[in-house]
Design a protein around this nucleic acid. Structure first.
Lengths: 243, 243
DNA sequence: TCAAGTTGTCTATTATCATAGACAACTTCA
DNA sequence: TGAAGTTGTCTATGATAATAGACAACTTGA
């Protein structure tokens, strides 16, 4: 590691550079459409090899944040995604409307049992069998959000396998005969990303996340699924609709 | 990387394991003085090699979080600093459809000129004279939120002095003859506290904050005041009511 | 047209990361 | 005392990270 780092931090240098540049974009130091400093200049400011900078830029380019033009420079490509909050908010609508392609990826599905809080949210007894689904959502190529969803294992047997094939919570519920549902509650707070989420969201350690706890209910107000979602704060902003 | 990770994240595996264990300690899954699972068992749960686990444990040991005892096990060394991930304090009335009772303490009032963004929000020209009001809000004795409000200096002359005496944005607007107004837009995102806000909010550096940008308008949709508020994320959660 | 500056690609070298297997040293408990 | 289970240490191998230098391909502006 360069700089004063004598002990290895376990985070690759190119990742630190990439995070630094991304932060510059997120904070507006590099505006959308503008040219970044040259690779040599970036290498000097971070005191790393030019190849290391190129690795960082390649990672950003893969996610669509920057675009390199040979002979000219590297340009900032994207902006924050606006995420309106109202009942019936569904990810595909939002990102679809913005012209970005929604993608959901199953990370993991496993069995779980209801804690007191989960039991209360879902209207079940403590210890009731649940299905836990971990999923990752993208806009374009950038990971936006990690969600952990819990459903009753009795009401939705095999929910994990279904989600793996349909890749959408709406379609999962449709598969079990639920055509309509709505958002019962949404709580928003913020936190710091942990290492696991950081790796999956392609976020630097210590970066802020928006934490959204929500529960969806059917038309009879019976809880269907409760979720905890973690959004990369620098890529998302929430728009609260009020009359 | 193990699991399904085919793309390298730039974060070393041992670091992910170390963070995972540290999180377990912080959240009390591994109590102080207790024995951690064996290296083989940890390796299996994270699906990595035992040497990778040893690297992770070595990093934690170097920081004094754990202590290994040959032939016996590895033990949690320190008492965690317990802080709740989210408090139960509800501020729905501040951020939801309401958001009208900022009873707070005036920190500073000064003159400012409209940047492009402020001008757009307030429907003024760039460079138009503004009054900027910095205020601090408490719940009990804990500081909760810092707000920076901007108003047109032409429409609200002496707004700073008025706010200092009435200590409420609603009453300030009443003073200028505005009895009714509503929230036009609310944008929520998250960030890291800066040094100035950290001191005022009694927050550690690097802690997350909820950033709320909002604009209030009169019944004719004319912008009155635009605000940027920073909430200590660990003391606040937002409740979004829908339906 | 030409020079300067940019990104793209190649080879090469060294250090770290992650895995794998084997065995030693030690503790615990029956 | 002995077996089982724990951490400690050694060697070894392949993949990745980071450095270094050279040059090609291209854009920009004088």
């Amino acid at each position: 590691m360069s700089l004063q780092d004598t002990t290895s931090s376990g985070v690759a240098l190119w990742r630190l550079v990439a995070d630094g540049i991304e932060r510059g974009i997120a904070e507006g130091r590099f505006a959308a459409g503008e040219k970044l400093p040259g690779e040599m200049e970036i290498a000097e400011t971070y005191r790393v090899n030019r190849h290391t900078v190129r690795r960082a830029l390649a990672a950003l380019a893969e996610r669509g944040l920057v675009r390199a033009e040979r002979g000219s420079g590297t340009y900032v490509e994207v902006q924050k995604i606006a995420y309106p909050l109202r009942s019936r908010t569904r990810f595909s609508e939002i990102v679809g409307a913005g012209g970005r392609e929604p993608r959901g990826q199953l990370i993991d599905a496993s069995e779980d049992v209801a804690s007191r809080e989960l039991a209360r949210e879902l209207g079940l007894k403590v210890g009731a069998p649940l299905v836990r689904i971990e999923s990752l959502r993208f806009a374009d190529r950038a990971p936006i959000c990690i969600s952990t969803s819990w459903l009753s294992a009795e009401r939705f047997p095999g929910a994990g396998e279904v989600f793996a094939s349909v890749r959408s919570m709406t379609k999962l519920l449709e598969h079990f005969g639920i055509r309509d549902y709505r958002r019962a509650s949404t709580r928003i707070t913020a936190g710091i990303v942990d290492a696991t989420d950081a790796a999956r969201l392609d976020l630097a350690l210590g970066r802020p996340i928006l934490v959204v706890d929500s529960t969806d209910v059917d038309p009879d107000d019976k809880p269907l699924v409760t979720k905890r979602s973690r959004f990369a704060a620098e890529r998302v902003e929430f728009l609260v609709e009020n009359g």
